[in-house]
Amino acid sequence: MLKQSIKQLVITTCVALLPLTLQADEFTKQDLKLWQDEFMTVVGEGRKVFTDPKLGTNGVVCAQCHPNGANTHPETYPKFQKQLGRVAQMWEMVNWCIRNPLEGKDLAVDDPRMTAILSYIAFERRGVKMEPGKH
């Protein structure tokens, strides 16, 4: 009986606290650092994928044509790609490069390597204003 009351109390308390906890989603400088570090780790992995001869099948790497991720224009996507005849996203163009100059196979959109590549490209382009659709 007592045990049950305590359980009840705990549940009630939790329910009562839940919205409060969500509203009070405060984060610390430490959190910020942690999240930034997580992001930079993925950026670093992106650089590795960007220079990985095994990403495709012929040893050609992304950085061979895109030093420092240049000429990728992440700030302009989505945009109309005349070669595809429709509006495309950045990851579709990444896969285009993997299929063609790298003679490899598409990555899934949510493949961690795709996320890493997109993170690296975006990081190298940091500070440039968003201009979706720009050519």
């Binding site: 030093p67 420092n68 240049a70 000429n71 070669q83 285009w96 063609n100 100059p101 190298e124 500070g127």
Partner: peptide
């Protein structure tokens, strides 16, 4: 290769005289 000016994190000294080549169609 991209012109170095397109790497937004660094300054380059591409000769002012140069009119750049047309941007490449990757396809």
């Amino acid at each position: 290769w991209p012109y170095p000016s397109t790497y937004s994190q660094a300054a380059s000294q591409l000769p002012k005289l140069t009119v750049e080549m047309n941007r490449a169609d990757p396809f």
